[in-house]
Design a protein around this nucleic acid. Structure first.
Length: 575
DNA sequence: GCCGTTTTCGGCCCGACTGTTTTCAGTCG
């Protein structure tokens, strides 16, 4: 899909307009359009052909025209004009904390700073701090922001951020005067990566709490420390720094603050618009009519007063949830999960035995698991030859007999080969209770006679023994891009064949991702959420997959792992 | 540039913190 590319183009226009000093609202409208394109389920090319672009939120005639121009010529006049005005590397400077469009424009105009390398030079030479409006302290902040950006490697994965946040939540909870602490921000919304960790707490003496927070063990640098807000960076492991913002409010404002700091920004703008339409004011302290506080203690009260359903945090993305008619779905929770259908053992590249994985699963209260080791072509993962697989299947069945209170299914994670065929012959697959089919090699675009990843996946969906497609796009968060795939077609084929699509719960994958989950949910495709655990400890990653499922609107009914062991066996039995 | 329950023009969410300011601009979320 070209959607992501178009989103990047509009974001670039927004960056350049901002540096150019354009009206902020105009800049925002480009950003909003970019986000809409990025999140759009339908292909922008198709929408454009049908002249339906303006049906998208935040897309008017002007934006639609520019998209049409981009699709037919590969250029947008406005972008060409802006690009002629500023160096290509300039927008990258906006990523640096402490450096915004005004200062970037100033540094370019006065010192000809064209990119990061130039910026470092003028910091070192002292030229930057001589500019009007800047000074030694500002430049120090920018230099630190640059160092932070280079060390943090961008956004922090959910699987790193959530445990880190939880450890600081526990420590903030113990500070004197603090009674309530919550995670807010994109982390509360369960996003796959986060920019920083937002923590909200309740206390009367904000300054004292912030001061204590800023001196907690593990804090590397203090970016801000005021009466209601503290901002620090902490050690996030792997020599990465992660930023944590703490906000302190009193209990009368706690719900309003939680709503406000959970976001998303776009969701909040929608909610506030409703407040403004009633001549009310909504901020982090409450919902107000003049001086009178209408709501504030509880998040639900804010929504109720505005005549809105209170959506779960994971759905607060301005995707139609700010609507009196919105039906809040009964989203899946970790408690609904009754088993894990994708895990490895020492037979291939796992670290634990069948029995150890089973014992760990029982501790989690599961009713079933499926042992899915790698197939023969995954040599790097010690994939099992047909002979070894035959023995392994017997071993799983033998272990299953001995293990009480947990159904242990004989499974495999079978490679989908470059020609679209399965790595094991049907007679092997037929002996499995559960087959996950995954692409692990030749992840390029295909072409010149080779099958594309989309074609290979559809071919696997067509195999009568394949029950699920594992980590369908192959992406690794912050490390490897998703394969170029036509997810709409795959979802359609999976729906037809009644094949499950996996939400791989490993925080390095989260694949399907949220928007793809949404597509699958809409199409009625059955999902399966699995950890792909290679170690007993990794079974606990289930919660990341559940968060992703929730973001996509998945309910227990649409997730195979929510069935009882007996119902699951019936469901996957071959007729 | 978008948009419509004070509508086709004139708004567009709103506050905290910091630094360089002598009353406020820039950045951030």
């Amino acid at each position: 899909m070209i959607n992501a590319e178009i989103a990047r183009v509009f974001d670039r226009i927004a960056d350049l307009l901002e540096i150019d000093g354009a009206d902020g609202f105009r800049v925002n409208s480009y950003r909003r359009a970019a986000r809409t394109f990025k999140d759009a389920v339908e292909d922008v090319v198709v929408l454009a052909a049908q002249r339906r672009l303006t049906e998208l939120p935040g897309v008017g005639k002007g934006t639609a025209d520019r998209v049409q121009q981009y699709l037919s010529t590969g250029h947008i006049d406005l972008l060409d004009e802006l690009a002629a005005k500023f160096p290509a590397e300039l927008p990258a400077l906006l990523e640096i904390p402490g450096l915004g469009p005004k200062k970037v424009a100033l540094a370019y105009r006065e010192l000809h700073v064209k990119g990061v390398a130039d910026l470092k030079k003028v910091i070192a030479s002292g030229a930057l701090e001589k500019l009007p409006g800047l000074g030694a302290a500002s430049v120090k902040k920018i230099a630190e922001g640059l160092a932070f950006l280079e060390s943090s490697g961008g956004r922090t994965p959910l699987g790193i951020a959530l445990p880190l946040a939880e450890s600081y939540v526990e420590r903030v909870r113990k500070l004197p005067g603090v009674s309530r602490v919550e995670i807010a921000g994109s982390l509360r919304r369960g996003k796959e990566t986060i920019g920083d960790i937002d923590i909200l707490c309740d206390a009367d003496d904000g300054a004292a709490v912030v001061k204590k927070f800023a001196s907690l063990e593990g804090v590397k640098r203090v970016l801000a420390s005021g009466a209601t807000k503290g901002s620090v960076t902490v050690d996030g492991g792997d020599e990465q720094e992660v930023q944590i913002d703490l906000r302190v409010v009193d209990s009368d404002s706690f719900g309003a603050a939680l709503q406000y700091f959970t976001g998303s920004k776009e969701h909040n703008v929608r909610v506030r618009e409703r407040a403004v339409a009633r001549k009310w004011k909504l901020n982090e302290y409450g919902l107000f009519e003049g001086e009178k506080r209408l709501a504030g203690r509880k998040e639900e009260d804010i929504y109720k007063k505005l005549g809105l359903p209170c959506p779960p945090p994971e759905l607060r993305e301005d995707h139609g949830e700010v609507d009196p008619e919105f039906q809040v779905p009964g989203l899946i929770t970790v408690k609904d999960i009754r088993g894990d259908l994708h895990m490895h053992t020492v037979a291939s590249d796992g670290r634990n035995s069948i029995e150890e994985m089973a014992a760990a699963a029982k501790k989690l209260g599961y009713e079933f698991i499926a042992i899915c080791d790698h197939s023969k072509s995954s040599t790097i993962a010690n994939g099992l030859s047909i002979e070894r697989m035959t023995g392994h299947m017997a071993a799983i069945r033998a272990a299953a007999k001995k293990i009480k209170g947990l159904a242990v299914l004989v499974g495999c994670e079978c490679d989908i080969l470059p020609d679209g065929s399965m790595d094991y012959p049907d007679e092997i697959l037929a002996q499995c209770d559960w087959v996950v089919a995954s692409i692990h090699s030749a992840m390029g675009p295909g072409g010149s006679g080779k099958l594309t990843p989309t074609e290979r996946t559809i071919s696997a969906i067509g195999n009568r023994f394949v029950r699920a497609i594992g980590h369908p796009t192959g992406r690794l968060i912050n490390r490897r891009a998703a394969m170029d795939m036509d997810m709409a077609r795959i979802v359609e084929e999976a729906a037809k064949a009644k094949t499950c699509l996996e939400i791989n719960a490993s925080w390095q994958r989260l694949d399907l991702k949220d928007t793809h989950v949404h597509m699958a949910v809409e199409a009625g495709v059955m999902l399966t959420i699995n950890t792909d655990a290679h170690h007993v400890d990794q079974l606990a990653q289930m919660r990341f997959g559940v968060l992703t499922a929730r973001r996509g609107g998945a309910t227990p009914k649409g997730v195979l792992n929510c069935l009882s062991a007996a119902d699951l066996k019936k469901k996957i039995a071959r007729s």
